[in-house]
Write a protein that binds this DNA or RNA. Structure first.
Length: 371
DNA sequence: AAGACGTGGAG
DNA sequence: TCTCCAAGTCT
């Protein structure tokens, strides 16, 4: 940082930068509900939900979650499955499990009061460097800088960082800049202002430098191509896959399986489903799903019901839903599944599900009502 | 340290 | 249609 050509190495310039940033924030900030509260629990919840998730998605879910569990103690007392169900569709489901575990710790070991320092917060499950710093600064006024994807982009542009921003060295430099620029008098607002800048003006594409309060200090802007920053390695290419999911029926009900904690979609209930191997026919895969996931080799596959496409992480999935009669035999599970139920479509609505499984559940409910 | 972990909206 | 990616954490 000391060798950097940035004018912000100069202390008076840094303080002018802070002033301009905060003035802009005070004037232009969006009215977001978690900015209207001082409840550390509510702020914490917003930070967890906002991880890799857009404001628009979070808004209604944050309100609903808080209405259901207004305090840490109430959240701690809730069954994990209900918390997970409330999280359905938000993705990154480990967040819900960690949040619930952390609530239990706060309730039991901290008398229901969230710890107020980064150091203590950091020990709670799901509290990484970003979230701990965000909660400590926003809810408790601790003078610590956050470094999220917004701040990373703003700072990388500000100093025209010619280094992979995700590399160890790049991150170290960004952390140093974030700490040096932090306004110790209003750390929470300063952090939010930097993130707000990244979210609204200093956007990944077509940044609005003309309206930016930091434009005068920005080396990225001076370079003429601010959108070149932050430098990042290319992403892995998308993959394609076919999957078969099974409505495996027995006595007017069908089989759903619960996934273990700690695997993808941990804790969620789903139909038996398998990834097709190369050139494997869907009908074959459907029978394999019954055989391998539930140990029901007597299952009789009767036909396709529905096809849909969705994307999970870096895989585009062509999902085919098939119907089968379970036949005789007891269900026996193996990882990643740990529990099963024979249910009707309307019962499945009550269980935590991924977005895709929820689509299937809605389809089955509609089909069931036609008869 | 690199890779896994979801989803939906924007351009 | 398709790529990019959003207030990251964990292993």
């Amino acid at each position: 940082m000391k060798d950097s050509p940035s004018p912000l190495t100069n202390a008076p310039r840094r303080s002018a930068f802070r002033r301009r940033l905060l003035r802009w924030y005070d004037r232009e900030k969006r009215r977001l509900p978690w900015r209207e509260t001082v409840d550390p629990y509510a702020i914490w919840l917003s930070e967890i939900m906002l991880q890799q998730t857009t404001v628009a998605t979070v808004l209604p879910r944050w309100e609903r979650f808080l209405a259901r569990w207004p305090t840490v103690e109430e959240l701690a007392a809730a069954p994990a499955a209900e918390v997970l169900h409330e999280w359905s569709g938000l993705g990154y489901y480990a967040r819900a499990r960690n949040l619930h575990r952390a609530a239990g710790i706060v309730a039991r070991e901290h008398a229901g009061r969230l710890p107020s320092t980064v150091e203590e917060l950091r020990r709670l499950p799901g509290m990484g460097p970003y979230t701990a710093a965000a909660v400590a600064s926003i809810a408790f006024g601790e003078a610590v800088a956050v470094l999220d994807a917004n701040v990373e982009r703003v700072l990388a542009r500000l100093v025209a960082l010619e280094e992979d921003s995700r590399s160890a060295g790049g991150k170290r430099h960004l952390r140093e800049w974030a700490a040096a620029l932090l306004d110790p008098n209003r750390p929470g607002d300063h952090n939010q202002a930097l993130m707000e800048l990244g979210a609204t003006l200093c956007t990944p594409k077509a940044p609005a430098c003309g309206r930016c309060p930091a434009a005068g200090d920005c080396l990225g802007r001076r370079s003429g191509q601010p959108e070149r920053y932050p430098l990042r390695p290319a992403r892995a290419p998308m993959e394609q896959a076919r999957e078969v999911a099974l409505v495996l029926a027995r006595g007017g009900r069908f089989l759903v399986l619960r996934r273990q904690d700690g695997v993808s979609f941990g804790g969620m209930w789903e139909l038996p489903r398998v990834r097709c191997t190369a050139n494997e026919e869907p009908g074959k895969a459907a029978h394999r799903a019954a055989r391998e996931l539930a140990r029901l080799p007597a299952a009789k596959v009767t036909g396709p019901l529905l096809e849909l496409r969705h994307t999970v992480m870096r895989t585009k999935i062509h999902l085919m839903l098939w119907r089968a009669a379970a036949g005789a035999g007891a269900v026996s599970l193996r990882p990643p599944h740990c529990e099963f139920r024979w249910i009707r479509p309307r019962d499945w609505a009550e269980l935590p599900k991924s977005s895709t499984q929820a689509r299937i559940a809605r389809y089955l409910l509609r089909e069931g009502q036609k008869k």
